[in-house]
Amino acid sequence: MKTIKEINEKIKKGEAVVVTAEEMIKIVEEEGAKKAADYVDVVTTGTFGAMCSSGVFINFGHSDPPIKMLNIYLNNVEAYGGLAAVDTYIGAAQPNEDPDIDIEYGGAHVIEDLVRGKEIELYAEGYTTDCYPRKEVNVKITLDDVNQAIMVNPRNCYQAYPAATNSREEKIYTYMGILWPEYGNIHFSGAGQLNPLQNDYNPKTKGYNTIGIGTKIFLGGGEGFIIGEGTQHNPPFGTLMVKGDLKKMNPRYVRAATMPKYGPTLYIGIGVPIPVLNEEIAKRCAIKDEDIEVKIYDYGIPRRERPVVGITNYKELRSGKICLEVEIDNKKVLK
């Protein structure tokens, strides 16, 4: 048994034993969870993937004369105008207002460009009030120019995510990528044995061993915090709500993407340290890809309840080939 305080002291002295979630699997396998808990202090976990439910609160600072911004556009991508005069929230999945650009440059791209230090055009319209007389503002800004840019993501870091396939006779374009006709491929998302929530999950309590509000994390290359459970949080499919200072992030871990014929999204890198306080925590940190069940949904049926066509795990998914027995003609389809 250790305490977080003891581990923090070891970290300060440079004596803490820190291993990755993958290294922990081997350690627990070879030496047992008890011994692993004795000498391993921290297990590092992480994920990197498309997380549409992401965005950034920005406070622009006031113009002179000042404006109460209502319709706000950053590089022609609309940001939310229902906050105080010069506050906004730009969401990653927002497409461009220009129909010719549309999903090719959206909110996620604005966010990445801000992190890269690029100039962004701000155009905002307001309605005049006695205290905010200006009607319009049009100016180039960079991340350095704004007062705050705080990333707050309502739902990141899914503990596990169902895989996707397609029963239709034509290929379909989804947020899980391009799915070929007649179960031609399977796409999956999730870091499996590296995922933070997976490594911290306690099946007995249906809660999490160490992760909670205030846990300090790696977010997009900078320091971030877990600020609570994310939207659609439903253990064992837990999610996280996180925040971090965009000004301290690194474009290596904040990457804009466009899922073809679907929309813009933001790929974000998240890392969470798990303090190994006892044997139970150590044991869970040794969870393997093959232990994590993943349902395969038919995205060819666009309903709330998509049919489950099979059950697999992250090990099989990562191998690249899955034998799937599908009902149509009772034929077996590979991959």
């Binding site: 990197f48 498309a50 491929n185 990457r255 993407a257 899922m259 690249g320």
Partner: peptide
Amino acid sequence: CVHCGCCVTQCPFDVIYV
């Protein structure tokens, strides 16, 4: 490239792998 893997299953000739 961020190695997301979206391309892997699109290849008819198994050129791309993880």
